[in-house]
Amino acid sequence: MHLRQLSTGQISNDDFEERIMTDVTYGWPPEQYYLAEESKTDDLVIRPILEFSWCLYNDTYNHKLTGSHRLSDEQTKEIARFILFLHSNLEYDWTYIDLINPVIRFSFTDILKSIITLGKHYRDLNLKREEEFELMKKTGDFELWPFKTTTDYQEQLKCHPFLNG
């Protein structure tokens, strides 16, 4: 519900984060949910959808996704598919790949390694992440993510969860 409200401009980014922290992430902001112990045992689709959601808005100031912040038609369709998946009874079946730029999650050790290797450590982490992502995409119908197969997606479309009374 919160993702739908954010994407349609009903609530601001700050409202979204506050509601997510209250209802979903055990008090963690979306971009830090990976640090929560519960993120390791929670529904596996929550973390990647939160990470995608965090990229929809600028979290340095309060705004709604309207006007110049309005989502593109492609983003709106993706979010509709995410919401459709969240309302399904399907299990999330993709391997998790952290798509957040590694520098955001760098430890002090990573910073030192990158300096000592003149950036090679960072480039290696980036390359590894890209390779893992490309392999993961080949394990299903990635254009329909978070659905794994076209059949699952088409079956869920038949359910019309938002049009049943």
Rank of each mutant, 00 (worst) to 15 (best):
Q5E: 15
L6Q: 08
T8I: 12
S12M: 04
N13Y: 03
F16H: 00
E18H: 13
T25D: 01
Y26M: 13
G27N: 05
W28T: 02
E31R: 10
Q32A: 11
Q32K: 09
Y34S: 06
A36I: 02
D42I: 02
L50Q: 10
F52D: 13
S53D: 00
C55L: 12
N58T: 06
T60H: 12
Y61P: 01
H63N: 07
K64Q: 11
S68R: 15
R70P: 11
E74H: 12
E78F: 05
I79D: 04
R81F: 04
R81C: 07
F82N: 03
I83R: 13
I83Q: 10
F85H: 01
L86Q: 09
S88Q: 02
N89T: 12
N89P: 04
Y92A: 03
Y92G: 00
I97E: 01
L99R: 12
I100R: 11
I100A: 06
N101Y: 12
I104V: 13
F106K: 06
D110C: 00
I111C: 10
K113Q: 11
K113D: 06
I116M: 04
I116Q: 04
T117M: 00
K120S: 14
H121L: 08
Y122L: 13
R123G: 03
N126K: 15
L127E: 15
L127V: 11
K128P: 14
K128I: 10
E131A: 05
E132R: 08
E132G: 13
E134S: 03
E134K: 04
M136R: 09
K137N: 01
K137G: 03
K137L: 01
G140E: 00
D141T: 10
F142Y: 07
W145Y: 03
W145V: 06
K148P: 08
T149N: 06
T150H: 15
T150C: 14
D152Y: 01
Y153Q: 11
K158Y: 05
C159D: 13
H160M: 05
F162Y: 10
L163E: 07
N164Y: 04
N164L: 12
